[in-house]
Nucleic acid binder design. Structure first.
Length: 448
RNA sequence: GCCGCUAUCGUCUAGGGGACUAGGACGCCGCCCUCUCACGGCGGAAACCGGGGUUCGAAUCCCCGUAGCGGUACCA
């Protein structure tokens, strides 16, 4: 069994493409040979930058154990010309100058549902001759057999007038030469499959087995694109998602497990994945569910691992202590800095929080807390907690009345990791300094 | 227009003639936990597109409609 992933040469890897790659990769883990080929027959759009982006995305996802990738247009020109000549000489294809107007005129005469048939000419583009009778059957593991009657099919153009070949021709010949047995790709290719099969048939070749995956849609039900937010793997990475969560989510988006598990690591998926259980209907990409799933994966990471990833993501170092007290509150890596950045960069500026919690009562509380923490020794979490709870008891108020002013003094906002943990991570000196500063800044603020 | 694919809670899905009072997950609502935000726990609302068949029996099989999506390029 040989499978291949043949993405467009257009830079960023679309999440739909990522899912296709994932399914191919899963098949490879089950024993298939996995081939990667950039399919580019359109004036070499496969720039080194574009190819690198695709390869990077696959590497990030951990799907990079394919056979050495190759680019169709660049390496296959001569072979394509050879097959083209073979088809023309054999009477399976012909040159024709007929374009859109001629095709429309033909259909006006013979009926809208009749496929275009042209006459052989001395020059022009190359069209494949489709038999008038019969049908081409696409054998698909996911959908069963789909039949296309030849009468409805136009003689497809397989090469331009300048001799450069077109996708439906190139992909058929490339798959044939690469010995591909199973083609797993998006459903958008289903309607063009008979053209590819017809090329193969003219060559006397049987054609592979297909598995056309349902398309991915955005929240509005339309094909997923940039305007839906993160539509590419690189955007997902930049948004702070973990590759293992993205893989888990993508596999299950369109693939139903027999049991009811949702969080299934990619390794566990290898044994259970089965093309016959891939869903037939298009799926909407739901970023909220991905966020939830990503949170689960974040919490399963060790503190060391999570710290390393966050240091790469933020470009900062020395994050470990802050990570340890924040990990329960993150869904994505991008959530970390807004939550814990104050530990490193000083309090945030949230006027509403200051106004609410640093009023006269709040300042009185801060003075008590300052005194209490000043006396704590050793400065451990238990001791800090006892000291702060002592203030709560002494003032006979709800814990929140004490903890929130402290939180705002330290973090500058009403949301932060646990207050005892935060105080300990900041240390006595920094904590007291921030409380002093909060008292001063409030005192200096002009009275309303 | 023509050709094709698809159709279960808002979303992802389980379901392959009786086990369906249609199960799980995200999201949503309520309660609990609680120093904020989260996490976690418990509970709840929420679906078989419509119409005909086949059958003792249909979410499941067939047909027709409808809707959504895709293809229809000298794009990939």
């Amino acid at each position: 069994m040989r499978v291949r992933f043949a993405p467009s040469p257009t830079g960023a890897l679309h999440v739909g493409g990522a899912r296709t790659a994932l399914y191919n990769w899963l098949l490879a883990q089950q024993g298939a040979t996995f081939v990667l080929r950039i399919e580019d027959t359109d004036r070499e759009r496969s720039t080194p930058e574009n190819v690198e982006q695709i390869l990077d995305a696959l590497e990030w996802l951990g799907l990079d154990d394919y056979e050495k990738p190759w680019i169709s247009q660049i390496s296959r020109r001569e072979r394509h010309q050879e097959v083209l000549r073979q088809l023309i000489d054999g009477g399976h294809a012909y040159r024709s100058t007929a374009a859109k107007p001629e095709v429309d005129a033909y259909k006006a005469r013979h009926g809208r549902e009749r496929g275009f048939r042209g006459e052989a000419e001395a020059e022009g583009a190359v069209r494949l001759r489709v038999p008038d009778d019969g049908e081409t059957v696409v054998r698909d593991i996911i959908r069963g057999e789909t039949t296309f009657a030849h009468v409805h099919l136009d003689d497809p153009v397989i090469a331009r007038a300048d001799g450069s070949v077109l996708y439906n021709f190139a992909v058929a010949v490339d798959d044939l030469d690469a010995g591909i047995t199973h083609v797993v790709r998006g459903e958008d290719h289903l309607s063009n499959t008979p053209k590819q099969l017809l090329v193969l048939e003219a060559l006397g070749e049987p054609g592979p087995l297909y598995a056309h995956l349902p398309l991915l849609h955005g929240p509005d039900g339309k094909k997923l694109s940039k305007r839906h937010g993160a539509a590419s793997v690189q955007e997902l990475r930049d948004a702070g998602f973990l590759p293992e969560a993205v893989c888990n989510y993508l596999v299950l988006l369109g693939f139903g497990m027999y049991d009811d598990e949702t969080i299934v690591p990619i390794d566990a998926l290898i044994n259970r994945f089965d093309l016959t259980h891939v869903s037939k209907n298009p799926a909407q990409f739901d970023e909220r569910k991905l966020r939830w799933m990503n949170g689960r994966y974040v919490r399963d990471l060790s503190v060391e691992d999570l710290t390393a990833r966050l240091e790469t993501f933020t470009g900062r170092t020395g994050l470990r202590a802050a990570v340890e007290i924040s990990r329960e509150k993150m869904q994505t890596l991008a959530d970390f800095w807004p939550l814990a950045g104050f530990i490193f960069d000083g309090p945030a500026d949230d006027p509403a929080a200051r106004e609410k919690w640093l009023d006269d009562d709040g300042r009185a509380v801060l003075r008590d807390v300052h005194a209490a923490l000043d006396a704590v020794d050793p400065f451990t979490q238990d001791a800090v907690q006892a000291a702060l709870e002592g203030v709560v008891a002494a003032r006979e108020v709800k814990p929140k009345q004490i903890f929130q002013p402290v939180r705002v003094a330290l973090a500058g906002r009403a949301i932060s990791p646990g207050i005892f943990e935060t105080v300990v991570v900041l240390g006595r000196e920094e904590t007291l300094r921030r409380i002093d500063r909060a008292l001063q800044s409030v005192a200096k603020a002009p009275a309303p």
